[in-house]
Every structure is written in structure tokens, then in C-alpha cells.
Design a protein around this nucleic acid. Structure first.
Lengths: 203, 203
DNA sequence: AGTTTTTATGTACAGATGTACACATAGTTG
DNA sequence: CAACTATGTGTACATCTGTACATAAAAACT
């Protein structure tokens, strides 16, 4: 477009095999390209996805991306589906490490802050996926998977209506917080969750 | 890209002045171009924004878009800011037509359903704006304006904490509902709002 | 009137992009 | 070993894109 992009996205260029300009079977290359695509989306946004940008980020030649993926939309679809599944898996893992008597507002606050802070990249990609799905029916399933997982998870600790409600609060806070600068305070988030579950003070 | 785009986006081509290939002062042209940009975003997504696509949608020659906007990012920024301001204005207008004793869950449900249904385009653009702002600091102010307006509005009918909480629920429901097919049921939304404000049944 | 400024348009051009494809190499099978 | 297939790479090319700019017409101004 306008700028010249200093080509320093990852510098993974020959990280995996020093010379050997030829070819050795490299299983997992497909997946590595897909992950590189995810990181391009995270760092530059979905509109900057390009065969060349992804190839550079993955440290593979241009031809490699067109060999493993028929078209750019294919690549995008695979990458985003993978990102969504990773997110859901990570969410389930997090849920498994909790017992059923937890202080829900507190742990939900932790989760929100984690998604806005250390795992901001993940959150950004998830949001890009959502919006991309608005104009690409092929991506809708991957998008809604995340919502479903959230809802099921929260429902398991409360009931159906409250689960949906908390999932909405959670989404809303993420949605609002991801563009905000600076990050919201912990107390602010927690207070909101406590109000949502009906507490006026922590018990 | 891949497809050839049948060029039928709006067909506004000479809607405003029949012949007159030359030039007559046309005030509002700038704004008309910006609105055309918004509709391109709504119909095709933000990544399809192009001088040529916008020009076609606005019914003006290519040179006109480059004359009125220094760069494509400028055009995008102006268009999205305008869309955001329109949304906020429309929201305030809606709020003015309400008295303070309303049944909040009911009217919030109405609003959600309106944004998901008749005004889906508006909602789509707002969401595209949000995600675009993730990688364009210049757009952040316009994005957060909407959140702020929502929060202030809801706060006026309850209190600060509940206002924020309801704004989050609202955002979350919009966020989840916009990708869903088909639209959620009215009862589902309303039940969630009632739970959020602490009712178990309508009083 | 003439002169300058603003508004408008069509065209041109360098660069980026998606994708095809000819070639090369590595595994596999006989 | 030879024949074949799957995998990998570099290059080429038509197309699209942003943007500059020469030209022109109208408006404003003196």
C-alpha cells in the first residue's frame, strides 16, 4: 500500500534448517504457515494478510504458501479456524483447573484481565475473526464456537440464564477493553461482575 | 483479487446531474463520498475499501476521491468517524424519546433487536470500526465514543456500576448476535436483561 | 474585463498482489 | 537401480491499487 514494511516481521527465515536450499520433507509446515498467518493478523490486522507477508513470517519461500493452500481465502480460513480452536481449548483447560465453589466474579475478572493483557494477541485475533466472519460465511462456525464454549462454561457454574448473561458481560468487557487505553482497573471489572451476579459486596 | 466484482454496488452514477461532464460546484460531495465509503464497508467489509470501489458507489469519477481526500486512510478515518457520530446521535435521539420510569429490560431488548435487524448495517460498520481501530490509533477515539455514550445513557437510568454492567451486556449481546444465524428470540434477550438487573420475573 | 483560486476529471505509472507453472529434489515403490 | 509421486522453490505475469498530475471548467476576485 503506502508504506514499505521493513520486512522484519519475524526473521524466522532459516531458523529451522541452516542451508539445504533444496527440500526435505517437513511435516507440520502447513500448520506452521497457518500459525504465521495468525501472527500476521495479530500484528498487522486481517487486511494485511498476504501470501508474501505470511511466507516471510513463517520463514518459507513464497511458493510454499501457494503450494500448501489453494487460495488466500483458504489460508485465512484454516488459520482462523485453528486460532479459534486453540482459544476454545485453552479456555477449557483453564476451566478444568477450577473447582465448582470458586468466587465467580473474581476468577472472571482474572480471565478478562488476562485476555486484555498477557494474551492480548489472542483476543485481537479472535475479534478480527469475528468481524471477518460478517462477510465470510465460511468463518461463522469458528466464530460462534467461542461464544458457545463461553456460555457452556459459565452455565456450568450457575444456570442457563445467568450463564448467558455472564457470557454477554464477559464479551462486552473484552470488546470494550481491547480498544481502551490504558487497561481498565481490576476493581472496576470485578465490581461489574459482582453486580451482575447480584452481590452488592463481596461475601 | 480473485473475482471480478460486477460493479453494481449502487448504480448512483449520474443520479445527481444528468450530463455536465465538466464541473459545477457540488457542496456535500465530500460527505457523499464518505457515506459511500461507509456503505462499501457495510456491504463488503473494510478490507474491500478502495478508491475505485468508493468512487463507483458514490457515482463520482476516480479523481474525485483523490481530490477530496489526501489518502485512503484519511477517507477511511473520516468515513468511520462520521458513522460513529451518526450512531451516537441516533442513540441519543432514541434515549430522548424515553421517560425515566421505563421498563429497562424491555426497551434494551427492543434496542438490541433493532440493531441486529433493521439497523444491521449500522451495527456491522460499528464493529468493523472497532476492529479497525485495533491497528489504527487514529480511529480509537471514534470507537470509544460509542461505548461512552452507551454507558452514560444506561447510567442515567440506574447507577454507575449497573450502567457499566448493562452496557457490557448490551455490547456482548450485539457482538454475539451479529454473527448468529438466525436472529435470537426476543424472549431470550429480555430474560437475560431481567436477570442482569436482578429480577426473576417481570414486576 | 482579466486574473487567480477552487473544484473536478481522466489518464498514467510504479509498485504490490494472487496465482500459475516449470523446474528440482526427496521419498517411495518396483 | 529405475520409475513414479509427493513435496518444495523461484520466477513470471496479468491484474489491481494508490496516488500524482496535466488539463479544464467554474467561481471568486480585482
Amino acid at each position: 500500500m503506502t508504506t514499505t514494511d521493513s520486512e522484519s516481521l519475524h526473521a524466522t527465515v532459516d531458523e529451522r534448517r541452516g542451508r539445504n536450499g533444496g527440500s526435505r520433507k517437513d511435516p507440520g509446515r502447513r500448520e506452521r504457515i497457518a500459525r504465521a498467518a495468525i501472527s500476521v493478523v495479530a500484528e498487522r490486522g486481517i487486511e494485511k494478510i498476504t501470501h508474501r507477508a505470511v511466507a516471510a513470517a513463517a520463514g518459507v519461500p513464497l511458493g510454499s504458501t501457494t503450494y500448501h493452500f489453494a487460495t488466500l481465502d483458504d489460508l485465512l480460513a484454516v488459520a482462523l479456524r485453528q486460532a479459534a480452536q486453540d482459544n476454545v481449548a485453552e479456555l477449557r483447560e483453564w476451566a478444568d483447573g477450577m473447582d465448582s465453589g470458586v468466587d465467580l466474579p473474581a476468577v472472571l475478572t482474572d480471565l478478562v484481565l488476562r485476555y486484555l493483557g498477557p494474551e492480548r494477541e489472542r483476543t485481537v485475533v479472535e475479534h478480527e475473526l469475528y468481524v471477518a466472519a460478517l462477510h465470510r460465511p465460511a468463518l461463522r462456525a469458528a466464530s460462534t464456537e467461542w461464544d458457545g464454549a463461553l456460555r457452556d462454561l459459565f452455565t456450568a457454574y450457575t444456570d442457563e440464564v445467568s450463564g448467558k448473561m455472564l457470557a454477554a458481560v464477559f464479551c462486552g468487557l473484552l470488546w470494550q477493553g481491547i480498544v481502551r487505553e490504558p487497561l481498565p482497573e481490576r476493581d472496576e471489572i470485578e465490581t461489574i461482575f459482582r453486580r451482575a451476579v447480584g452481590d452488592t459486596a463481596h461475601g
